[in-house]
Design a protein around this nucleic acid. Structure first.
Lengths: 338, 338
DNA sequence: ATCTGTCCCGGGAACGGTACCGAAATTTTT
DNA sequence: AAAAATTTCGGTACCGTTCCCGGGACAGAT
């Protein structure tokens, strides 16, 4: 049986002082003599005293924990982002409570509810792909709970946001494919209600326009990131009259799946079709041909968002701050023709 | 400014009843008339009353949160396991607090400390690859905090454990390679102080013995899962006099990296070298040749461990339970010769 | 000797719930 | 009609902290 944990009162009684004195001593307060402070700390150590966080939290109305809502931990981008979040948070003495929305709106709402009732000091969120409304977050904002979005942001909300330059990098990637001689670039677009998806699509369109490449509607396919769809739209794209000679995929895994299908059909990459992925997974270096991709600074985004959140918590101000993290185009064999 | 949240007292005052009555009404206790219960709930709803979890936690000395310590969320196996944990935990009304040890012992110890001081109701842990001692966990056990290990377990501790049949599956995988005609099977072994690594190595050795294949020490290389090492030991293996004709890799990514290196050297897979990975990542289906692997039921292990933990929490008993989750050999092109 | 100031310290009220115990009101039993 | 049982509720202690406030002791200043 657990010998019930020693409390501040036990120490007080054993030393013949009051609770307050012990509390002050342990918290390095001023109103206590060095002598008693020493004795208190000594005894606390000897008794293996651990302050009861729950009591402190109740008293201080503060938990020192941050709530995180992400679509999926299985998604490597978010797994990395969580790494950045935890590093910064732990460094500042904060704990982190992670919830997954599994890419659904209802779970996201539930997560928000539980995190709020858990009285987290702040929230870091990347919305689900279903999220096409923001009232649940507005509810949190109204309750004055600091909130920072990262990557999958809701631009309509007046809160801090950390995101990457999806437009720019999509423009760059598309232009790169054009420079490699691609005339018909297939583009796999995400859900149009997502800020990132729209920006990426726009970057693609603008790059075509800027380079006088005609926009062909049938080359743009929709993906909701779900499994099984890749085969379907790959077939759609390559069963068409005029087949693509370039592909800007939605992520690396689907890029590799597309490449696999195309290779089975006897197509050469990058000669017949140049391919560009997204996320720059380690695997990019170990496939044939090696896969060009876009490095998305997940860790940095998580870290940056956390820093902003912590600043907002400590300053008690509800400032709206935007931070842009640069992505990087990594060119490998799958898109290099010259 | 946040209109300070309404409390149970506010409701009591407005209704002219006592705190206790309100508490009972909201918790569906028996000692309250239907009429007052209705009025209380109605007003609570209207006032958007949210119970203060912190107060309840302090009073009940129970947080309804489980602490999880895993090596890395970036590791897909653990990311999936976390999925299983959260599903079961949330279903039972529990929250989950996840910590990463980053595969280091010191961080693991820190994580344990913070989780314990956060007063989690139970612990789920998969130890780091550095962990070669168990005193920190013994400390937790002494404090009567329920603890369940999964996958990376410490067998010497008298607590519940959920693991997979590493010996069996390693035996099966090795025998499969032998049946495909491999005579010299390279084996990438993990840190020998880890239970799983030892079992996998033993499964390999026993399979060789059972099939009268000589054990060649130089075919067994050590890996600590670190990046960069793959190139090194691949070169070591294939610069040798007698090269391997089969590889049992430590995971899929390193298997793919090895395959990539070998292909660059003009070797054919599986003709010259048969390859078997570990973890059965989605990518296995999209490479050439498709990669044989071992499916490790990560989600199920997390879920099973959580179920055991919850049962232990509610029953207040410190039973020691062991559960074995079966792995599965998935044969694809990289290891199929006939 | 009185006053002011500094240094320590203790008492006690919070924080927001839960639960035990007893009592009042109402119903049932004898 | 009295006694017993049941239903419903209020009072209060408690969980373990933190922090405000006030007071005693002791020094130096007046």
């Amino acid at each position: 049986m657990s010998k019930s944990d020693s409390t501040i009162r036990d120490i007080a009684r054993m030393l013949g002082v009051s609770k307050s004195t012990v509390s002050r001593a342990l918290n390095n307060h001023y109103d206590v003599s060095q002598e008693t402070a020493r004795k208190v700390k000594e005894l606390a150590l000897k008794m293996d005293y651990q302050p009861n966080i729950l009591a402190r939290q109740l008293k201080l109305q503060r938990t020192n924990t941050l709530g995180v809502i992400i679509p999926e931990t299985i998604n490597r981008f978010f797994a990395k982002a969580v790494g950045g979040i935890q590093e910064v948070a732990n460094g500042a003495g904060y704990n982190v409570m992670i919830c997954q929305s599994n890419e659904t709106l209802t779970l996201e709402q539930n997560n928000l509810q539980t995190l709020m009732s858990s009285k987290v000091d702040g929230l870091l969120v990347s919305v689900s792909r279903q999220t096409d409304r923001s009232d649940h977050f507005q509810y949190a904002i109204n309750k004055d709970i600091p909130l920072v979005f990262f990557d999958r942001i809701l631009e309509e909300l007046a809160v801090s946001q950390v995101y990457s330059d999806n437009f720019d990098i999509s423009f760059q990637g598309t232009e790169h494919l054009i420079q490699q001689g691609c005339k018909r670039i297939a583009f796999v677009a995400g859900p149009s209600h997502l800020f990132n998806s729209r920006n990426r699509l726009n970057g693609y369109l603008e790059a075509l326009k800027a380079n006088n490449v005609p926009v062909v509607e049938s080359l743009i396919v929709q993906s909701n990131y779900q499994a099984g769809h890749v085969q379907q739209y790959t077939r759609y794209l390559f069963d068409a009259e005029e087949k693509p000679d370039g592909i800007f995929a939605i992520n690396d895994i689907s890029a590799l799946e597309m490449m696999h299908i195309l290779k089975m059909q006897g197509l050469q990459i990058p000669r017949d079709v140049a391919v560009l992925g997204f996320n720059n997974e380690v695997i990019c270096d170990f496939v044939e041909p090696t896969l060009s991709s876009i490095e998305h600074p997940a860790f940095d985004m998580g870290a940056a968002a956390t820093r902003i959140l912590l600043k907002q918590i400590s300053s008690k101000e509800i400032t709206q701050q935007k931070e842009l993290i640069k992505s990087r185009l990594v060119i490998r064999e799958s898109s290099r023709r010259y």
